[in-house]
Design a protein around this nucleic acid. Structure first.
Lengths: 231, 231
DNA sequence: GATCTGTAGATCGTTGACAATCTGACTTCC
DNA sequence: GGAAGTCAGATTGTCAACGATCTACAGATC
Protein backbone atom coordinates (compact mmCIF):
# COMPACT_ATOMS: atom_id res chain seq x y z
CA UNK A 1 0.00 0.00 0.00
CA UNK A 2 2.51 2.52 1.09
CA UNK A 3 4.49 4.06 -1.75
CA UNK A 4 7.63 2.82 -0.12
CA UNK A 5 10.39 2.08 -2.59
CA UNK A 6 10.69 -1.60 -3.35
CA UNK A 7 13.68 -2.30 -1.17
CA UNK A 8 13.14 -1.03 2.37
CA UNK A 9 15.88 0.95 3.98
CA UNK A 10 17.12 -1.28 6.72
CA UNK A 11 17.54 -4.44 4.70
CA UNK A 12 18.42 -2.88 1.38
CA UNK A 13 21.40 -1.13 2.86
CA UNK A 14 21.97 -3.94 5.31
CA UNK A 15 22.78 -1.16 7.75
CA UNK A 16 21.62 -1.50 11.35
CA UNK A 17 20.75 2.15 11.70
CA UNK A 18 18.75 1.50 14.85
CA UNK A 19 15.28 2.59 15.82
CA UNK A 20 16.00 6.20 16.64
CA UNK A 21 15.13 9.07 14.40
CA UNK A 22 16.78 8.98 11.02
CA UNK A 23 19.06 11.94 11.56
CA UNK A 24 20.19 10.59 14.95
CA UNK A 25 21.07 7.27 13.35
CA UNK A 26 22.89 9.02 10.53
CA UNK A 27 24.84 11.10 13.01
CA UNK A 28 26.07 7.98 14.75
CA UNK A 29 26.93 6.28 11.47
CA UNK A 30 28.82 9.22 10.01
CA UNK A 31 30.62 9.76 13.29
CA UNK A 32 31.78 6.15 13.20
CA UNK A 33 33.03 6.64 9.65
CA UNK A 34 35.01 9.70 10.65
CA UNK A 35 36.55 8.21 13.76
CA UNK A 36 37.10 4.60 12.79
CA UNK A 37 36.79 4.62 9.04
CA UNK A 38 39.59 7.07 8.82
CA UNK A 39 38.42 9.79 6.52
CA UNK A 40 41.34 12.06 5.65
CA UNK A 41 41.51 15.24 7.69
CA UNK A 42 40.14 18.25 5.87
CA UNK A 43 38.04 16.01 3.63
CA UNK A 44 34.82 17.58 2.50
CA UNK A 45 31.67 15.65 3.35
CA UNK A 46 29.35 15.71 0.37
CA UNK A 47 25.67 15.81 1.26
CA UNK A 48 24.55 14.01 -1.89
CA UNK A 49 27.11 11.28 -1.36
CA UNK A 50 25.82 10.41 2.10
CA UNK A 51 22.21 10.81 1.02
CA UNK A 52 22.69 8.23 -1.72
CA UNK A 53 24.87 5.99 0.38
CA UNK A 54 22.16 5.62 3.03
CA UNK A 55 19.24 5.92 0.61
CA UNK A 56 17.75 8.95 2.28
CA UNK A 57 17.13 12.55 1.34
CA UNK A 58 19.54 15.35 2.07
CA UNK A 59 17.42 16.72 4.92
CA UNK A 60 18.38 14.18 7.56
CA UNK A 61 21.98 14.27 6.37
CA UNK A 62 22.12 18.01 6.92
CA UNK A 63 20.66 17.64 10.39
CA UNK A 64 23.22 15.01 11.23
CA UNK A 65 25.96 17.37 10.06
CA UNK A 66 24.71 20.13 12.36
CA UNK A 67 25.00 17.84 15.34
CA UNK A 68 28.53 16.85 14.33
CA UNK A 69 29.48 20.50 14.00
CA UNK A 70 28.33 21.12 17.55
CA UNK A 71 30.23 18.05 18.70
CA UNK A 72 33.37 19.54 17.20
CA UNK A 73 34.09 16.69 14.80
CA UNK A 74 33.52 18.66 11.61
CA UNK A 75 33.81 22.28 10.61
CA UNK A 76 31.19 24.22 8.77
CA UNK A 77 31.79 26.72 5.98
CA UNK A 78 28.76 28.55 4.58
CA UNK A 79 27.98 27.63 0.99
CA UNK A 80 30.89 25.22 0.95
CA UNK A 81 29.87 22.38 3.19
CA UNK A 82 31.32 20.60 6.18
CA UNK A 83 34.87 19.32 6.49
CA UNK A 84 36.49 16.79 8.76
CA UNK A 85 38.06 19.00 11.35
CA UNK A 86 41.77 19.59 11.32
CA UNK A 87 43.29 19.58 14.78
CA UNK A 88 46.53 21.48 15.09
CA UNK A 89 49.17 20.76 17.68
CA UNK A 90 48.19 23.86 19.61
CA UNK A 91 44.58 22.76 19.71
CA UNK A 92 45.60 19.29 20.79
CA UNK A 93 47.69 20.74 23.60
CA UNK A 94 44.73 22.81 24.75
CA UNK A 95 42.50 19.76 24.61
CA UNK A 96 44.95 17.78 26.71
CA UNK A 97 44.78 20.47 29.35
CA UNK A 98 41.01 20.27 29.43
CA UNK A 99 41.32 16.52 29.61
CA UNK A 100 43.67 16.85 32.54
CA UNK A 101 41.10 19.00 34.32
CA UNK A 102 38.32 16.49 33.76
CA UNK A 103 40.30 13.36 34.46
CA UNK A 104 41.95 14.65 37.60
CA UNK A 105 38.49 15.55 38.88
CA UNK A 106 37.38 12.03 38.07
CA UNK A 107 40.26 10.64 40.09
CA UNK A 108 39.41 12.91 42.97
CA UNK A 109 35.74 11.92 42.96
CA UNK A 110 36.66 8.26 42.52
CA UNK A 111 38.77 8.47 45.67
CA UNK A 112 35.70 9.79 47.47
CA UNK A 113 33.10 7.42 46.05
CA UNK A 114 34.94 4.24 45.14
CA UNK A 115 33.42 0.85 45.88
CA UNK A 116 35.09 -2.38 46.81
CA UNK A 117 34.50 -4.08 43.47
CA UNK A 118 35.98 -1.13 41.64
CA UNK A 119 39.11 -1.24 43.74
CA UNK A 120 39.52 -4.90 42.85
CA UNK A 121 38.97 -4.18 39.19
CA UNK A 122 41.40 -1.26 39.10
CA UNK A 123 44.18 -3.23 40.76
CA UNK A 124 43.49 -6.12 38.42
CA UNK A 125 43.80 -3.89 35.37
CA UNK A 126 47.13 -2.45 36.47
CA UNK A 127 48.38 -5.99 37.05
CA UNK A 128 47.13 -7.14 33.65
CA UNK A 129 48.80 -4.21 31.95
CA UNK A 130 52.07 -5.07 33.63
CA UNK A 131 51.79 -8.58 32.29
CA UNK A 132 50.85 -7.30 28.84
CA UNK A 133 54.06 -5.28 28.80
CA UNK A 134 56.41 -7.82 30.32
CA UNK A 135 55.07 -11.09 28.99
CA UNK A 136 53.22 -10.27 25.79
CA UNK A 137 55.18 -7.40 24.31
CA UNK A 138 52.36 -4.93 24.77
CA UNK A 139 49.65 -7.13 23.30
CA UNK A 140 46.26 -5.97 24.59
CA UNK A 141 47.73 -3.00 26.45
CA UNK A 142 45.73 -0.45 24.49
CA UNK A 143 42.35 -1.93 25.41
CA UNK A 144 43.31 -2.42 29.04
CA UNK A 145 44.37 1.20 29.17
CA UNK A 146 40.96 2.28 27.89
CA UNK A 147 39.29 0.02 30.44
CA UNK A 148 41.25 1.57 33.26
CA UNK A 149 40.28 5.09 32.33
CA UNK A 150 36.66 4.03 31.91
CA UNK A 151 36.66 2.38 35.31
CA UNK A 152 37.99 5.51 36.99
CA UNK A 153 35.26 7.51 35.29
CA UNK A 154 32.68 5.04 36.45
CA UNK A 155 33.93 5.16 40.02
CA UNK A 156 33.61 8.96 39.96
CA UNK A 157 29.86 8.51 39.56
CA UNK A 158 29.24 11.68 37.60
CA UNK A 159 27.60 11.15 34.23
CA UNK A 160 28.02 14.73 33.13
CA UNK A 161 31.73 14.49 33.75
CA UNK A 162 31.92 11.21 31.86
CA UNK A 163 29.98 12.58 28.89
CA UNK A 164 32.15 15.68 28.64
CA UNK A 165 35.26 13.56 28.89
CA UNK A 166 34.03 11.20 26.18
CA UNK A 167 33.30 14.04 23.79
CA UNK A 168 36.77 15.42 24.29
CA UNK A 169 38.45 12.07 23.73
CA UNK A 170 36.52 11.68 20.47
CA UNK A 171 37.80 15.02 19.33
CA UNK A 172 41.34 14.07 20.18
CA UNK A 173 40.99 11.11 17.83
CA UNK A 174 41.06 13.67 15.04
CA UNK A 175 44.57 14.70 15.97
CA UNK A 176 46.82 12.98 13.51
CA UNK A 177 49.54 12.35 16.04
CA UNK A 178 47.15 10.45 18.26
CA UNK A 179 49.00 7.21 17.85
CA UNK A 180 52.31 8.67 18.79
CA UNK A 181 51.96 7.63 22.40
CA UNK A 182 54.16 4.64 21.75
CA UNK A 183 54.84 1.51 23.66
CA UNK A 184 58.16 2.90 24.85
CA UNK A 185 56.25 4.84 27.42
CA UNK A 186 54.04 2.01 28.57
CA UNK A 187 56.25 1.13 31.51
CA UNK A 188 56.42 4.68 32.78
CA UNK A 189 52.73 5.10 32.12
CA UNK A 190 51.78 2.04 34.09
CA UNK A 191 53.84 3.14 37.07
CA UNK A 192 51.70 6.26 37.02
CA UNK A 193 48.61 4.07 36.81
CA UNK A 194 49.66 2.21 39.92
CA UNK A 195 50.09 5.46 41.83
CA UNK A 196 46.68 6.65 40.65
CA UNK A 197 44.95 3.47 41.70
CA UNK A 198 46.58 3.37 45.13
CA UNK A 199 45.53 6.96 45.79
CA UNK A 200 41.95 6.03 44.93
CA UNK A 201 42.15 2.92 47.09
CA UNK A 202 43.37 4.99 50.03
CA UNK A 203 40.59 7.47 49.50
CA UNK A 204 43.17 10.24 49.37
CA UNK A 205 41.46 12.91 47.28
CA UNK A 206 44.39 15.28 46.97
CA UNK A 207 46.86 12.57 45.99
CA UNK A 208 44.33 11.14 43.56
CA UNK A 209 43.98 14.56 41.98
CA UNK A 210 47.71 15.01 41.66
CA UNK A 211 48.47 11.58 40.23
CA UNK A 212 45.68 11.76 37.67
CA UNK A 213 46.60 15.30 36.72
CA UNK A 214 50.24 14.43 36.24
CA UNK A 215 49.35 11.37 34.21
CA UNK A 216 47.48 13.35 31.58
CA UNK A 217 49.92 16.25 31.59
CA UNK A 218 52.79 13.82 31.06
CA UNK A 219 50.91 12.33 28.13
CA UNK A 220 50.59 15.89 26.83
CA UNK A 221 54.35 16.31 26.99
CA UNK A 222 54.93 13.03 25.20
CA UNK A 223 52.60 14.08 22.40
CA UNK A 224 54.50 17.32 21.97
CA UNK A 225 57.81 15.47 21.80
CA UNK A 226 56.49 12.89 19.38
CA UNK A 227 55.02 15.59 17.19
CA UNK A 228 58.33 17.38 16.96
CA UNK A 229 59.93 14.16 15.77
CA UNK A 230 57.68 13.92 12.74
CA UNK A 231 57.31 17.61 12.03
CA UNK B 1 33.88 44.39 -10.08
CA UNK B 2 32.10 41.40 -8.72
CA UNK B 3 28.66 40.60 -10.11
CA UNK B 4 26.72 41.64 -7.06
CA UNK B 5 23.17 40.28 -7.15
CA UNK B 6 20.52 42.88 -7.71
CA UNK B 7 18.54 42.46 -4.52
CA UNK B 8 20.77 41.51 -1.64
CA UNK B 9 19.44 39.30 1.09
CA UNK B 10 20.35 41.16 4.20
CA UNK B 11 18.20 44.15 3.40
CA UNK B 12 15.41 42.22 1.71
CA UNK B 13 14.86 40.15 4.84
CA UNK B 14 15.19 43.18 7.05
CA UNK B 15 16.21 40.76 9.78
CA UNK B 16 19.33 41.47 11.81
CA UNK B 17 20.05 37.77 12.02
CA UNK B 18 23.68 38.29 11.16
CA UNK B 19 25.63 37.22 8.13
CA UNK B 20 26.07 33.58 9.06
CA UNK B 21 23.99 30.80 7.63
CA UNK B 22 20.34 30.96 8.44
CA UNK B 23 20.29 27.98 10.78
CA UNK B 24 23.32 29.29 12.66
CA UNK B 25 21.60 32.62 13.18
CA UNK B 26 18.43 30.88 14.29
CA UNK B 27 20.36 28.76 16.73
CA UNK B 28 21.78 31.87 18.38
CA UNK B 29 18.41 33.57 18.45
CA UNK B 30 16.50 30.65 19.91
CA UNK B 31 19.26 30.08 22.43
CA UNK B 32 18.90 33.66 23.57
CA UNK B 33 15.17 33.18 23.96
CA UNK B 34 15.64 30.09 26.06
CA UNK B 35 18.31 31.55 28.32
CA UNK B 36 17.26 35.17 28.68
CA UNK B 37 13.69 35.19 27.46
CA UNK B 38 12.79 32.72 30.11
CA UNK B 39 10.86 29.99 28.40
CA UNK B 40 9.30 27.70 31.00
CA UNK B 41 11.20 24.49 31.66
CA UNK B 42 9.77 21.51 29.86
CA UNK B 43 8.10 23.76 27.30
CA UNK B 44 7.78 22.24 23.88
CA UNK B 45 9.33 24.23 21.06
CA UNK B 46 7.00 24.27 18.09
CA UNK B 47 8.72 24.19 14.73
CA UNK B 48 5.94 26.05 12.94
CA UNK B 49 5.89 28.75 15.58
CA UNK B 50 9.55 29.57 15.14
CA UNK B 51 9.34 29.23 11.37
CA UNK B 52 6.62 31.85 11.22
CA UNK B 53 8.17 34.04 13.88
CA UNK B 54 11.37 34.40 11.89
CA UNK B 55 9.74 34.16 8.47
CA UNK B 56 11.66 31.10 7.36
CA UNK B 57 10.84 27.55 6.47
CA UNK B 58 10.95 24.69 8.96
CA UNK B 59 14.20 23.27 7.60
CA UNK B 60 16.57 25.82 9.15
CA UNK B 61 14.55 25.69 12.38
CA UNK B 62 15.00 21.95 12.60
CA UNK B 63 18.72 22.28 12.02
CA UNK B 64 18.97 24.90 14.73
CA UNK B 65 17.16 22.52 17.08
CA UNK B 66 19.67 19.74 16.38
CA UNK B 67 22.51 22.01 17.36
CA UNK B 68 20.73 22.98 20.57
CA UNK B 69 20.16 19.31 21.38
CA UNK B 70 23.88 18.69 21.09
CA UNK B 71 24.57 21.74 23.25
CA UNK B 72 22.36 20.23 25.95
CA UNK B 73 19.87 23.09 26.08
CA UNK B 74 16.89 21.14 24.76
CA UNK B 75 15.84 17.51 24.75
CA UNK B 76 14.68 15.62 21.74
CA UNK B 77 11.81 13.13 21.64
CA UNK B 78 11.14 11.36 18.32
CA UNK B 79 7.83 12.32 16.74
CA UNK B 80 7.14 14.68 19.61
CA UNK B 81 9.59 17.49 19.18
CA UNK B 82 12.15 19.24 21.32
CA UNK B 83 11.60 20.48 24.87
CA UNK B 84 13.44 23.00 27.01
CA UNK B 85 15.60 20.78 29.15
CA UNK B 86 14.70 20.19 32.74
CA UNK B 87 17.71 20.20 35.04
CA UNK B 88 17.26 18.31 38.27
CA UNK B 89 19.16 19.04 41.47
CA UNK B 90 21.28 15.92 40.93
CA UNK B 91 22.20 17.04 37.44
CA UNK B 92 23.02 20.51 38.69
CA UNK B 93 25.28 19.06 41.37
CA UNK B 94 27.07 16.98 38.75
CA UNK B 95 27.44 20.03 36.55
CA UNK B 96 28.93 22.02 39.42
CA UNK B 97 31.54 19.33 39.87
CA UNK B 98 32.48 19.55 36.21
CA UNK B 99 32.58 23.29 36.55
CA UNK B 100 34.91 22.96 39.53
CA UNK B 101 37.21 20.81 37.42
CA UNK B 102 37.30 23.33 34.58
CA UNK B 103 37.54 26.46 36.67
CA UNK B 104 40.22 25.15 39.00
CA UNK B 105 42.25 24.27 35.92
CA UNK B 106 41.72 27.78 34.64
CA UNK B 107 43.02 29.16 37.93
CA UNK B 108 46.02 26.89 37.75
CA UNK B 109 46.85 27.89 34.18
CA UNK B 110 46.21 31.55 34.97
CA UNK B 111 48.80 31.33 37.74
CA UNK B 112 51.24 29.99 35.18
CA UNK B 113 50.45 32.37 32.32
CA UNK B 114 49.17 35.57 33.90
CA UNK B 115 50.25 38.96 32.59
CA UNK B 116 50.76 42.18 34.43
CA UNK B 117 47.65 43.89 33.09
CA UNK B 118 45.51 40.94 34.11
CA UNK B 119 46.86 41.06 37.63
CA UNK B 120 45.90 44.72 37.85
CA UNK B 121 42.45 43.99 36.48
CA UNK B 122 41.81 41.07 38.81
CA UNK B 123 42.79 43.02 41.90
CA UNK B 124 40.68 45.92 40.73
CA UNK B 125 37.65 43.71 40.31
CA UNK B 126 37.96 42.28 43.81
CA UNK B 127 38.23 45.78 45.16
CA UNK B 128 35.21 46.95 43.18
CA UNK B 129 33.18 44.02 44.41
CA UNK B 130 34.07 44.88 47.97
CA UNK B 131 32.82 48.39 47.40
CA UNK B 132 29.68 47.13 45.70
CA UNK B 133 28.91 45.10 48.80
CA UNK B 134 29.86 47.62 51.46
CA UNK B 135 28.86 50.91 49.85
CA UNK B 136 26.18 50.10 47.31
CA UNK B 137 24.28 47.21 48.87
CA UNK B 138 25.39 44.74 46.21
CA UNK B 139 24.58 46.96 43.26
CA UNK B 140 26.58 45.78 40.26
CA UNK B 141 28.05 42.82 42.10
CA UNK B 142 26.61 40.27 39.71
CA UNK B 143 28.26 41.74 36.63
CA UNK B 144 31.60 42.23 38.39
CA UNK B 145 31.47 38.60 39.44
CA UNK B 146 30.99 37.53 35.81
CA UNK B 147 33.86 39.78 34.78
CA UNK B 148 36.16 38.23 37.35
CA UNK B 149 35.45 34.72 36.16
CA UNK B 150 35.88 35.79 32.55
CA UNK B 151 39.19 37.43 33.32
CA UNK B 152 40.53 34.30 35.01
CA UNK B 153 39.49 32.29 31.96
CA UNK B 154 41.21 34.76 29.70
CA UNK B 155 44.40 34.64 31.74
CA UNK B 156 44.41 30.85 31.41
CA UNK B 157 44.89 31.30 27.67
CA UNK B 158 43.12 28.13 26.62
CA UNK B 159 40.22 28.66 24.23
CA UNK B 160 39.06 25.08 24.39
CA UNK B 161 38.80 25.31 28.16
CA UNK B 162 36.92 28.60 27.93
CA UNK B 163 34.48 27.23 25.36
CA UNK B 164 33.74 24.13 27.40
CA UNK B 165 33.27 26.24 30.50
CA UNK B 166 30.92 28.61 28.69
CA UNK B 167 28.77 25.76 27.43
CA UNK B 168 28.46 24.38 30.91
CA UNK B 169 27.52 27.72 32.42
CA UNK B 170 24.80 28.10 29.79
CA UNK B 171 23.39 24.75 30.76
CA UNK B 172 23.38 25.70 34.43
CA UNK B 173 21.19 28.66 33.54
CA UNK B 174 18.46 26.10 32.94
CA UNK B 175 18.55 25.07 36.59
CA UNK B 176 15.63 26.78 38.21
CA UNK B 177 17.47 27.43 41.45
CA UNK B 178 20.18 29.34 39.63
CA UNK B 179 19.37 32.58 41.34
CA UNK B 180 19.53 31.13 44.78
CA UNK B 181 23.12 32.16 45.30
CA UNK B 182 22.02 35.16 47.27
CA UNK B 183 23.71 38.30 48.35
CA UNK B 184 24.09 36.91 51.87
CA UNK B 185 27.04 34.97 50.60
CA UNK B 186 28.68 37.80 48.71
CA UNK B 187 31.05 38.68 51.57
CA UNK B 188 32.24 35.12 52.00
CA UNK B 189 32.42 34.71 48.26
CA UNK B 190 34.57 37.76 47.79
CA UNK B 191 36.99 36.68 50.47
CA UNK B 192 37.42 33.55 48.38
CA UNK B 193 37.93 35.73 45.32
CA UNK B 194 40.72 37.59 47.06
CA UNK B 195 42.47 34.34 47.90
CA UNK B 196 42.10 33.15 44.31
CA UNK B 197 43.53 36.33 42.88
CA UNK B 198 46.49 36.43 45.25
CA UNK B 199 47.36 32.83 44.37
CA UNK B 200 47.34 33.77 40.69
CA UNK B 201 49.40 36.88 41.38
CA UNK B 202 51.98 34.80 43.26
CA UNK B 203 52.09 32.33 40.41
CA UNK B 204 51.38 29.54 42.89
CA UNK B 205 49.72 26.90 40.74
CA UNK B 206 48.77 24.53 43.52
CA UNK B 207 47.25 27.22 45.70
CA UNK B 208 45.46 28.67 42.68
CA UNK B 209 44.01 25.25 41.96
CA UNK B 210 42.85 24.80 45.53
CA UNK B 211 41.29 28.20 45.95
CA UNK B 212 39.42 28.04 42.65
CA UNK B 213 38.31 24.50 43.32
CA UNK B 214 36.98 25.37 46.75
CA UNK B 215 35.22 28.43 45.43
CA UNK B 216 33.08 26.45 43.01
CA UNK B 217 32.53 23.55 45.39
CA UNK B 218 31.36 25.98 48.05
CA UNK B 219 28.94 27.47 45.56
CA UNK B 220 27.74 23.91 44.93
CA UNK B 221 27.05 23.49 48.64
CA UNK B 222 25.16 26.76 48.81
CA UNK B 223 22.98 25.72 45.89
CA UNK B 224 22.12 22.47 47.64
CA UNK B 225 21.21 24.31 50.83
CA UNK B 226 19.14 26.89 49.01
CA UNK B 227 17.35 24.20 47.05
CA UNK B 228 16.36 22.40 50.20
CA UNK B 229 14.83 25.61 51.52
CA UNK B 230 12.41 25.89 48.63
CA UNK B 231 11.81 22.20 48.07
C1' DG C 1 53.71 34.81 -19.86
C1' DA C 2 50.93 36.34 -16.06
C1' DT C 3 46.71 38.22 -14.51
C1' DC C 4 41.99 39.09 -14.98
C1' DT C 5 37.28 38.06 -16.55
C1' DG C 6 33.42 35.25 -17.79
C1' DT C 7 31.07 31.03 -18.12
C1' DA C 8 29.79 26.13 -16.84
C1' DG C 9 29.25 22.62 -13.64
C1' DA C 10 28.68 21.19 -9.14
C1' DT C 11 27.16 21.87 -4.50
C1' DC C 12 24.83 24.07 -0.90
C1' DG C 13 20.57 26.75 1.19
C1' DT C 14 15.92 27.01 1.48
C1' DT C 15 11.35 26.04 0.56
C1' DG C 16 6.66 23.90 0.25
C1' DA C 17 4.19 19.60 -0.04
C1' DC C 18 3.02 15.06 1.44
C1' DA C 19 3.24 10.98 4.58
C1' DA C 20 3.60 9.16 9.29
C1' DT C 21 2.83 9.73 14.03
C1' DC C 22 1.05 11.45 18.21
C1' DT C 23 -2.38 13.85 21.45
C1' DG C 24 -6.69 14.53 23.30
C1' DA C 25 -11.53 14.25 23.30
C1' DC C 26 -15.61 11.80 22.22
C1' DT C 27 -18.20 7.64 21.91
C1' DT C 28 -19.29 3.11 23.14
C1' DC C 29 -19.48 -0.82 26.01
C1' DC C 30 -19.23 -3.31 30.36
C1' DG D 1 -19.44 5.56 36.41
C1' DG D 2 -15.16 3.99 34.56
C1' DA D 3 -12.31 1.87 30.93
C1' DA D 4 -11.23 0.85 26.30
C1' DG D 5 -11.69 1.93 21.40
C1' DT D 6 -12.02 5.42 17.69
C1' DC D 7 -11.43 9.51 15.13
C1' DA D 8 -10.13 14.35 13.97
C1' DG D 9 -6.71 17.82 14.41
C1' DA D 10 -2.15 19.13 15.07
C1' DT D 11 2.72 18.27 14.71
C1' DT D 12 6.72 16.07 13.28
C1' DG D 13 9.53 13.28 9.56
C1' DT D 14 10.89 13.08 5.01
C1' DC D 15 11.33 14.25 0.38
C1' DA D 16 12.14 16.45 -4.25
C1' DA D 17 12.75 20.75 -6.60
C1' DC D 18 14.25 25.50 -7.24
C1' DG D 19 17.34 29.34 -6.50
C1' DA D 20 21.88 31.05 -4.80
C1' DT D 21 26.69 30.55 -4.33
C1' DC D 22 31.17 28.77 -5.03
C1' DT D 23 35.17 26.49 -7.64
C1' DA D 24 37.55 25.56 -11.66
C1' DC D 25 38.75 26.18 -16.22
C1' DA D 26 39.05 28.47 -20.62
C1' DG D 27 39.76 32.54 -23.09
C1' DA D 28 40.93 37.45 -23.46
C1' DT D 29 43.75 41.31 -22.28
C1' DC D 30 47.90 43.75 -21.04
Amino acid sequence: MKPVPAGDLSSAKAQPLGVRSLSMALRAEIEKMILHGGMPMGERLNENYFAEKFQVSRGPVREAFRALVEAGLVEFVPNRGVFVRQVSLDQAIAAYEVRAALFSMAGRLAARRRRKEEIIRLRGLVHDMDEAIEKRGGEGYYQLNLDLHATVMEAARNERLAATYQGLVKELHLFRAKNLDRMDHARVSNIEHAAMVEAIVDGDEVRAYETHFDHVMNARERVIEAYEDIA
